[in-house]
Design a protein around this nucleic acid. Structure first.
Lengths: 130, 130
DNA sequence: ATCGATGCAAACGCTTTGCACTCTT
DNA sequence: AAGAGTGCAAAGCGTTTGCATCGAT
């Protein structure tokens, strides 16, 4: 079985993502963690991020054609607003968005749903002013 | 203004995507179109696909970490079931999925929504049997 | 004749991986 | 001591781009 080791690299990666609300990508995490662990490699950052996602400590945000971004707020049921202007990602707790998991039983074609990808793309207030 | 030219390459790319329901990626389209136009380049395929998306003839499907896939059925309001086992994409006309566009007026933070990305990830019937 | 589109190949950006070494367990 | 994790560098993959040429209008 997989024995997970809590190395300082993996801890630093998790802390970096937890201490921001910018939904950073791997390159940002790499730069950030380097301030604490100057010798950490980009490969280790990727491997750590992947492991942390698997363990449920992080979730990913896939924006078309861009680098994968990470979010440490996995417990709350929130959604992402991706701004096409500045690339920033905003969180929202849209009460009006229905619970898709309740729909799983009605899924067609014998398909069993593990995950629902729901993202909103548009323009944020700042970018609209221009 | 942009004068769009209807070249045989662009037509062949559109036909290739229209004549399949496999939601192909650029490499598949490239191989397919080569049967008709043996000299077409991969760059042209990408440029054609991009142009066709802009013109509204195709839509894209972004599956985490995979190649962008294309769909010629843009008019119907359907959703995609992405199988994690075999990678196939199934269409569904889920009547139960609400119309998100109706929610736009209630969006928070002054954010204006252009597009809603909604995909279901799971396992298809064939893959579940194993 | 114009200038958008093409073919080719090189380059790009993000991510993964092979390997020898390190350090947690 | 064992083997998961690391650092490094090279490679992988999908995609984009520079440029000379072609061809639709």
């Amino acid at each position: 079985m997989a024995v997970v080791r809590f190395t300082k690299q993996r801890q630093a990666v998790l802390e970096a993502v937890r201490n921001t609300d910018t939904h950073p990508d791997a390159a940002w995490v790499y730069a950030e963690v380097r301030k604490v662990l100057p010798n950490i490699s980009l490969g280790t950052v990727y491997r750590s991020l992947e492991a942390l996602v698997q363990e449920g400590h992080l979730m990913t945000i896939q924006s078309a054609g861009e680098a994968t971004r990470y979010d440490a707020r996995t417990e709350e049921d929130h959604y992402h607003l991706v701004c096409r202007g500045c690339g920033r990602i905003f969180d929202t707790h849209l009460r009006d968005v229905p619970d898709f998991r309740a729909l799983l039983a009605r899924m067609p074609q014998g398909f069993s749903i593990d995950d629902v990808l729901l993202e909103f793309h548009g323009t944020c207030e700042d970018c609209r002013r221009q």
